[in-house]
Design a protein around this nucleic acid. Structure first.
Lengths: 354, 354
DNA sequence: CTAGAAATGATAGACGTCTATCAAAAAATG
DNA sequence: CATTTTTTGATAGACGTCTATCATTTCTAG
């Protein structure tokens, strides 16, 4: 009923602890047959290394740094909150998480932040990236200094980072498209996509996915020309007022990016039976309330809490130089309707008592 | 850049290690002011107990046992697979997981299994329960013996177990109802619910949730009398053939329970443009393929992998006698459409190498 | 056979915490 | 004041692994 230890393995293999240690830690200088005996003893006893004890002895501390865009955007603040609640959890893993807020969507501060990270005091960096040549260069400098680098939510070229954690925005857009299509029940329709900026990769990808699915499976739905909102609530509100004027037959609105408060304000003033199908992104306080109030039909969510958890897991594997799961664990976008809203997560602060 | 240890706390508080130990482990016999100094030193240094080291010293091994219904049902086998892949993950927590397969849906074997568990060799049991008086009594006997008990997927009376992990079936049904309603796009319709057995609590709950939402928000949808399938594929197929005959205007089918293969067989023979909206439960190989082939519109999933992970987490908290999060972490049912199918999880086997 | 190389054994001190014991100091009691 | 009682200190041995050192044995080449 006990776990086998390395001492057990040594005894069972008929060799000394030192030899077993040389085998399992690949220190070399072990004869073929001894190594084989150790290996088979390991299999026979079902030995599994006690990672806690190993990390304790190695004095391993994972020193991770997160570069998160500042609070301009509620989604980023949700990301930050998710990070904090992971950090607050009493965990048997020794992690030192440092968060650094960086002005959102601007190249220079992000580059400066990346360049300012000392590989001697940090093992791995996780950053919400911007896909521009200068930023990519900064990522590569960081890696050249010996840092491991992850991108979060927003990706760059795969060869410039070790891993990406987040949703596939094409998938997210397709999911939104399917949702929009389904909600039309094979009827004719006229759908307006709203996009933050023409530049943003993720917005373009979502839009492409959305249009692809709608065109392929719902030919009776007319797709209006996407309008730009600069992710600003006021702009979105105006956009909708205008669209409602020019297209009284509007049957659906898909907001690719942020600024949902403006959209919600608008839809609150529309008679329920006339209201177009509303599909938006990110389950945040505003969208949640609107969903609950029946103003919104579906929210596609990036699951920030899960994303952070996955990032931490991958970061540990990276610095341990363990093989990464070949199957990239992409976050699957969640679909929230009014009925399957998750309970509001309340960070339970626990004392350091037994 | 290091973590504070208990020795650091002792030094900082100006007391001995022994006193600090008495405080943090509540052994008593410490003067008020000493305890206060220790506490403030802990706060000042931001001390956090190293759970790994503590568990190592305590020789703590979590001995968990799972009672899972046998393979009659593909969902249970997915649960079992999820459990195994959690167990295979190299984890810094020392857990000994034992799985015991129990004939599905039958009282006596489950009772016998529960009664056969020795509290001396097991800390916590997690079982897919049956909500009958005899089974509840067996659960209570187990708890009286000092075992902690969790129910998984299927619950019993809250006071007969320590915790429940799984979805709220009412929520799952409501979600299905919303999905069905949305997919009708405010059109008239005629929807057939299929239920496994009239007895099964979870089926009844889902059905109630489904009907509640459809009636409340989609009054133009006519709900047909639910038919029973005994969760058998062949029965479901026949049910659908019959329904299609008597109701040529059928616009939706909701299968509350298992036996989706029969449903998929049937729908494969229907012309795509005439096909009713199909909403089913559990993302398994068959439903996944059907979703991907466009034969099904939505799958409501219980997320077995996440459920097992959550169960393990709660079980650890229970045997550690740590406070449980007051906010019960109910699993939120996931909605899968054709576009947001998760990647097929491939259990990455890792060697016990560093 | 012998020298040198390669492989192995033995062991000790760390990592941070738990548990236990015993002695010493401080406080409360009469 | 002496005597309990309470509180504190000091310390040692575990837990399973890592790392390092040094001595010994076994193998290989000349």
């Amino acid at each position: 009923m006990k776990f086998a230890t390395l001492h057990d393995v040594a005894r069972s293999a008929g060799v000394s602890y030192a030899t077993v240690d040389r085998v399992v830690n690949g220190r070399g200088g072990v004869a073929q047959k001894s190594a084989a005996r150790v290996q088979s003893a390991i299999l026979e006893l079902g030995y599994e290394r006690d990672v806690s004890a190993a990390n304790l002895a190695r004095k391993r501390v994972y020193r991770f740094r997160f570069l998160l865009p500042d609070d301009s955007n509620e989604f980023f603040s949700a990301l930050n909150h998710a990070l904090r609640s992971h950090d607050d959890q009493p965990s048997p893993l020794r992690m030192r998480l440092e968060t650094q807020r960086v002005p959102a969507f601007s190249e220079q501060p992000l580059i400066a932040a990346l360049d300012g990270i000392d590989a001697a005091t940090t093992d791995c960096v996780c950053a919400v990236a911007l896909d521009t040549p200068a930023v990519i260069a900064a990522f590569q400098r960081a890696r050249a200094r010996g840092l491991r680098v992850l991108t979060l939510v927003s990706d760059i070229a795969p060869n410039a980072r070790d891993h990406y954690i987040g949703i596939d925005n094409l998938v997210a857009g397709k999911t939104a498209g399917r949702m929009m299509g389904l909600a039309h029940g094979r009827q004719r329709g006229c759908v307006l996509p709203i996009i933050g900026a023409k530049r943003a990769h993720d917005h373009i990808e979502r839009l492409n996915g959305f249009c692809e699915v709608v065109k392929a499976y719902y030919p009776t739905i007319e797709l209006l020309e996407p309008v730009r909102s600069r992710d600003a609530a006021a702009t979105i509100h105006q956009v909708l007022v205008d669209a409602w004027q020019t297209h009284p037959d509007l049957t659906g609105v898909y907001n690719v990016g942020a600024g949902n408060d403006g959209l919600i304000d608008w839809v609150a003033g529309i008679a329920p039976q006339d209201r177009p199908v509303m599909v938006i992104h990110e389950l945040l306080s505003g969208s949640r309330t609107a969903l609950d109030a029946g103003l919104i039909d579906a929210v596609i969510d990036q699951k920030p809490y899960e994303a952070i958890g996955e990032a931490l897991r991958i970061m540990r594997l990276l610095v341990d130089e363990q093989p990464l799961p070949e199957m990239t664990p992409v976050i699957t976008p969640a679909i929230y309707l009014r009925e399957n809203l998750p309970a509001i997560t309340q960070t339970a602060n626990r004392m350091p008592s037994p």
